[in-house]
Simulated assay, not measured.
Amino acid sequence: MNKAMLGVIDATTFHDTLEDLLLHRSLAAVPLAGRYRLIDFVLSSMVNSGIESVAIFPKYQYRSLMDHLGSGKNWDLDRKRDGLFFFPAPALETIEDGPGSFNHFAHHMDYFNRSHQDFVVISNCYSISNLDFKAILDRHIAEECDITVVEQKGKSLEIFILSTKLLISLLESRGHTGYTCMQDVLMDSEYSINTYESTGYVKKVKSIIDYYEANMEILQTSTWKELFKTDNPIYTKVKDEPPTRYMKHSIVRNSMVANGCLIDGTIDRSVIFRSVKIGRGSSLKNCIVMQKSQIGENCVLESVILDKDVKIQDNVKLIGTPEEPIVIRKGIIQGELMNS
């Protein structure tokens, strides 16, 4: 039996509760943990599971995602055969197309018809985990079921394994059945459904609170070890930058600081992305600061999320809470007179 798998990542999702972070990027491209993007986790899991053909189906603001993925070289997917495929939504979708990922998939039916893999893994783009799809496929085959759903504590992770033939049939018959996505299929008793319980760390990012919690949880040693395994690494786009420079007055506790930063303040339990500058006398606690943001001198930030290229001028005080973190959108300049 051919146990080869296709990888399909549904990147069409848009969550209104994450709008502040999705103005200039797709959900799949949201930065996480200092140097990664959300899509890195499922994509790396697929590659580590021996999947050599992965199709990305984006719909909204996908320029940033394309820039991040490139040819797929960082995931060893720049191949002469198979590799990484990028299938944006059609420029003009008709009323007949309707909602749901199946219609998007169906616009690129040639990809599925020409594939030689017997099975397909369909996943969302916003689950943070490190999964072994080979083990899930083995269970799927052993149970002789139509569809395997990956769950944790009885809740679907929106990750599915099924035969490629069945997926093609579902796409071709969608006009008759009314199925728009895999969730619709699961509600039909016509198919035998098996579940696979994931016991490792999983976090689905559907809101600002989810995003904030995920970054804070990754600072915990136990979570880090579950996600970033030596034998199943999480890959991302590689950028060559100098080491971070810690100045005389810098103090850093229980934080993650990426390359290329200049730190002259105090950082406590925070995630700092690449090329961030933090001025003297400034204090950050429980914060997430994305790439190339700059924080002036004598600032106090607590439970704040700064998107890329944000500038915080001197003497600014921003105090949020873990339940309601303050989000500063990309490129905003926050001055002393704008304090909130």
Rank of each mutant, 00 (worst) to 15 (best):
I168W: 10
I168L: 12
L170R: 04
L170G: 06
L170N: 07
L171S: 05
L171C: 03
E172R: 14
R174D: 04
R174E: 07
R174L: 04
R174K: 09
R174W: 06
G175T: 02
H176G: 00
H176E: 14
G178H: 10
G178W: 08
G178D: 09
T180F: 09
C181W: 07
C181Y: 10
Q183Y: 08
D184K: 05
V185M: 05
V185I: 07
V185L: 04
L186P: 08
M187E: 15
M187G: 05
D188W: 02
D188H: 03
D188L: 01
D188I: 01
S189V: 06
S189T: 12
E190V: 05
E190D: 11
Y191H: 13
Y191R: 05
Y191T: 07
S192L: 07
S192Y: 10
S192K: 13
I193M: 07
I193C: 06
N194S: 15
N194E: 14
N194C: 14
T195R: 05
Y196S: 06
E197V: 04
S198H: 11
T199I: 10
G200M: 02
Y201G: 08
Y201K: 02
V202E: 13
V202C: 10
V202F: 06
K203V: 05
K204V: 15
K206H: 10
D210H: 14
D210E: 07
Y211S: 04
Y211T: 04
Y211P: 04
Y212Q: 15
Y212W: 11
A214L: 15
N215R: 02
E217Y: 01
I218E: 00
I218Y: 05
I218H: 00
L219S: 11
S222Q: 09
T223S: 08
T223Y: 04
T223W: 02
T223G: 03
K225H: 14
K225Q: 14
K225A: 13
E226C: 12
L227Y: 02
L227I: 15
F228I: 08
F228N: 01
K229S: 05
T230G: 00
T230A: 13
D231Q: 09
D231S: 12
N232M: 15
N232P: 00
P233V: 02
I234T: 02
Y235R: 13
Y235T: 03
T236W: 12
T236V: 06
T236Q: 13
K237S: 14
V238L: 13
K239R: 14
D240W: 04
D240L: 12
E241T: 06
E241G: 01
P242L: 15
P242Q: 13
P242Y: 08
P242A: 15
P243H: 06
P243V: 12
T244R: 03
R245V: 15
Y246P: 01
M247S: 12
H249S: 15
H249N: 15
H249I: 03
S250K: 09
S250R: 11
S250E: 08
S250D: 11
V252Y: 01
R253Y: 14
R253T: 10
R253M: 11
R253S: 09
R253C: 11
S255K: 02
S255A: 07
M256Y: 13
V257T: 06
A258Q: 09
A258F: 08
A258C: 14
N259P: 08
N259S: 14
G260N: 09
C261M: 05
L262P: 01
G265R: 01
T266A: 11
T266Q: 10
I267G: 02
I267D: 01
R269V: 11
R269K: 14
S270G: 06
S270L: 06
